[in-house]
């Protein structure tokens, strides 16, 4: 769970809710794709670690670039660094309640 008590982290998470997985139609935050948000105000650097539902997904470049596009105009940062990580691998257990509702999760699955 990412700490969103920090105003910038909350802003980052809010913006990444506009990054939608095109197969599932659910945003990256509710899917549990965002692993970490690191804010270095001194170095004016913002770093996001994210994953995708499938390793080897050919959409990875578009999703990383899309996340970067959504974050570029947050004031106070010279560098936005969105990284793809595969460890730990994503699993459906990472989805929020909201995402589970959206996919109409099967009870007992």
């Amino acid at each position: 769970m990412i700490d969103t008590s920090d105003e910038t982290a909350a802003e980052v998470i809010g913006r990444l809710r506009n990054l939608i997985d095109p197969e599932l139609g659910i945003n990256a935050v509710d899917l549990g794709l965002i692993y970490d948000v690191q804010i270095d105000t001194c170095a004016r650097e913002l770093r996001v670690d994210m994953t995708l539902t499938t390793p080897g997904c050919p959409l990875s470049d578009h999703m990383v670039q899309g996340a970067t596009n959504l974050l570029t105009d947050i004031p106070g940062f010279d560098q936005i660094d969105v990284r793809l990580v595969w460890d730990p691998p994503w699993s459906p257990d990472r989805m929020t309640e909201d995402a589970r509702r959206q996919i109409n999760e099967r009870p007992g699955a």
Binding site: I20, P22, E23, H62, Q65, G66, T68, N69
Partner: peptide, 11 residues
């Protein structure tokens, strides 16, 4: 793909 994060795209 190239428009993600710039404008709404369909699923």
């Amino acid at each position: 793909g190239p428009r993600v994060g710039r404008e709404p795209v369909p699923t």
